[in-house]
């Protein structure tokens, strides 16, 4: 079976007043129906990866090279109509701010039906019934009535449900979610996470979920890829990442989550801040902040270490037993 996502040696560089090497040699593979969390802090390249997958980056100011295949489709070669069919049909996206992503002048039902008509070529009545079905599936109470409401009449959680219904209306094989719960309240966030988990099972689609919150990643995903400075520095199953993180950055992030820190205890903070990526990293980008960095780490990019199948860590010291902290 073809891989759902196969990204090979992807490089993305933004040119402009300031050059930013946003992605540096990113490779990522996903099987059909998998849920992967892209975990990273601001500027780590996680959102850029999503945008590249959707072909959303402005071509004039962006230099992209590498290979991206989604379900066997070469994304970089898509143009015009084919690209439009791919977006929304094959792959769709849920954004962080549903208030901005939904069009305020059309009713919720109209927006979903419109997408269905465009991709499936069905008539308005059929599209509206699909829209109604989708609103039901995202567990919107009294969906029939909500079909004719405008986005501003809905609460934040309801709007995000509508956004998900819109994204899933054309049955994409891959759903991209860009921090869809960050703007929501805690009690609403968990509802949306559980909903996405159920829908993923129901539709059998693959999901890439971008987040900066490890807890959210644990709730949603089977696999986690940790990004830092435009690179994937560690990848594995959620269990492996949580129980046996190998990269010092991942371990730092886990500690910074404060889940099990006693009150008043000094936090083991990672010093410093991530690099600005004005130049392409030639050595381990985390080395300047790393508590266990060695001279070799500052000399060249670290080798990728594979402790097991589909598990990788980009760290020279990943094979060593972890020192007690």
């Amino acid at each position: 079976m073809t891989k759902l996502v196969d990204i090979q040696n992807l490089n993305v560089c933004f040119k402009g007043k300031r050059t930013v090497h946003a992605l540096n040699d990113v490779s990522l593979a996903m099987e059909q129906g998998e849920t992967l969390a892209l975990l990273g802090e601001s500027g780590s390249g996680k959102s850029v990866t999503l945008k590249t997958l959707l072909g959303l980056l402005p071509p004039k100011r962006t230099q992209i090279d590498g290979k991206i295949a989604v379900n066997g489709i070469d994304v970089m070669s898509l143009r015009g109509k084919a690209l439009q069919r791919y977006r929304g049909g094959e792959v769709s996206m849920v954004f962080q701010e549903p208030a901005l992503a939904l069009d305020p002048v059309y009713t919720v039902g109209h927006q979903i039906a419109e997408a269905v008509m465009r991709h499936k070529g069905v008539n308005k009545a059929e599209a509206m019934s699909t829209a109604l079905d989708m609103l039901d599936r995202v567990r919107i109470p009294s969906a029939n009535r909500r079909l004719h409401t405008y986005p501003h009449e809905l609460s934040g959680g309801m709007r995000q449900r509508v956004m998900i219904a819109l994204a899933l209306a054309c049955r994409p094989r891959l759903l991209l979610a860009d921090e869809p719960t960050t703007a929501l309240d805690a009690t609403v966030q968990i509802q949306i996470l559980l909903l996405l988990r159920e829908l993923q099972k129901e539709f059998g689609m693959g999901v890439i979920f971008v987040t900066h919150d490890i807890g959210v990643a644990v709730e949603i995903s089977e696999r986690i890829a940790v990004m830092y400075a435009g690179q994937i520095i560690e990848e594995g199953t959620t269990r492996e990442i949580i129980r046996d993180a190998r990269h010092p950055y991942t371990r730092g992030l886990l500690a910074a989550n404060l889940h099990d820190v006693a009150r008043g205890e000094r936090l083991n903070a990672i010093p410093g801040a991530p690099p600005a990526l004005e130049v392409r990293p030639e050595s381990c980008p985390f080395a300047p902040r790393c508590p266990v960095a060695m001279a070799e780490c500052r000399a060249a990019l670290p080798p990728v270490f594979h402790p097991s199948d589909r598990r990788r860590v980009a760290c020279l010291r990943a094979a060593e037993p972890i020192a007690a902290e």
Binding site: A273, P275, A276
Partner: peptide
């Protein structure tokens, strides 16, 4: 207190 020694904006 760590002062962001690697912060690029403080290059």
């Amino acid at each position: 207190v760590e002062t962001d020694p690697t912060d690029p904006r403080a290059a």
